[in-house]
């Protein structure tokens, strides 16, 4: 198992803030919009340095999506910022009509996604956002795993023509991906080569997948681990190449089973090359208040859950 280490921990949202600031300095067309959550979204540095290119929208997310769509018509590249819940579910029709169907170059940037929002509870812990956004024709959907990757993704999507949903979160997590990485929308990242089981993970679950790989190694199991930062476009080739080798899969995500990464993998396998699939995800349930760590354990999204799922998937392989 390839060794992954880290020396510092950061929140992914700070990676977004850093990426946006860099974009502000390099691309004069980039503008920022925020619905009364500048601190939470880490958009303060951009606002300070580029006040004329920053729009405080107030608690008006529907209007924010429409204004963002309008700004693209004048050649701007708007980055909207609010919580994942208010970036998707609250404004689904605005995104659908004014952004996705209209083919507008808006970057919808969403923090505080999933259970790791923690104590605020289920009203804010959206676990359906990837599915909602994935279903919209033409919408790219990205879920990054650490500070460095979120920063790289933020910078990369400015050059990607078309609407993008970029999902990140609140908790402080290991910052372990390379600082100088080149982020390619739609391209999976192979983290560890293995022959017994394929683990595809996204967002905060990627680090859990690495920890699971280490536990599995002690049991003599050789796991192939893939970081799927792009839920859509989905790197089918990378997943299929791996499954052809390992013949079973585990998907891991901080999202509902319905509509998420596991759902995309299941469709791919059923259409092309059926193989056992175990999904580590929230099973048709809302979250609740608690610390991020407590919630990830209670709702079955830990490294141990990935290990258990891997053993189950391997046992289901046809002999």
């Amino acid at each position: 198992m390839k060794k992954y280490t880290f020396t510092e921990k950061f929140d992914t949202r700070s990676g977004f803030g850093a990426g946006l600031l860099e974009l502000g300095r390099t691309n004069p067309n980039v503008v920022g919009l925020c619905a009364d959550l500048i601190g939470s979204l880490k958009m303060g540095d951009f606002q300070k340095e580029f006040p004329e290119r920053f729009f405080q929208m107030g608690i008006s997310e529907a209007n924010m999506m429409g204004v963002a769509a309008g700004l693209t018509i004048g050649g701007k590249i708007p980055f909207t910022g609010t919580f994942a819940n208010f970036s998707t579910g609250r404004v689904y029709d605005q995104i659908r009509q004014s952004i996705a169907y209209s083919g507008k170059n808006v970057k919808i940037c969403a923090s505080h996604a999933g259970l790791t929002l923690g104590e605020d509870g289920a009203t804010h812990q959206i676990l359906e956002d990837l599915g909602l956004m994935k279903m919209l024709p033409g919408m790219a959907v990205i879920n990054t795993c650490d500070f460095n990757q979120t920063k790289a993704a933020t910078i990369a999507i400015a050059k990607y023509e078309g609407p993008v949903y970029l999902r990140f979160g609140r908790p402080v997590v290991p910052n372990w991906t390379p600082k100088d990485q080149v982020f390619e929308v739609g391209k999976a990242v192979l983290l560890n080569e293995g022959k017994d089981v394929t683990i595809v993970a996204t967002g905060h679950l990627v680090w859990e997948a690495i920890k699971a790989g280490e536990i599995l190694e002690q049991k003599g199991i050789d796991a192939e681990i893939i970081n799927i930062h792009s839920i859509k476009p989905f790197d089918e080739k990378a997943v299929l190449a791996s499954v052809n080798k390992t013949r079973c899969v585990v998907s891991a995500e901080e999202h509902q089973m319905n509509g998420g990464l596991g759902d995309s993998v299941a469709q791919l396998l059923a259409r092309t090359n059926p193989a056992p699939l175990e999904m580590v995800a929230v099973n048709d349930s809302f979250g609740e208040s608690g610390t991020p760590e407590q919630l990830m354990i209670k709702y079955g999204l830990s490294a141990q859950n990935i290990v258990d799922a891997a053993l189950k998937a391997i046992a289901r392989k046809s002999k």
């Binding site: 729009f55 529907a62 209007n63 924010m64 999506m65 429409g66 204004v67 963002a68 769509a69 309008g70 700004l71 693209t72 018509i73 004048g74 050649g75 701007k76 708007p78 029709d93 605005q94 659908r96 009509q97 004014s98 169907y101 209209s102 083919g103 507008k104």
Partner: peptide, 30 residues
């Protein structure tokens, strides 16, 4: 709709309530 590239149309509309916001964004870009 814009998907068919009809000259004169800059945004899809029909689901009501969205056009003023879009116009404001375009005005801000101006």
């Amino acid at each position: 709709a814009t998907a068919e590239h009809l000259e004169g149309i800059r945004i899809a509309s029909g689901s009501l309530g969205q056009g003023l916001s879009v116009a404001l964004g375009a005005a801000q870009a101006k």
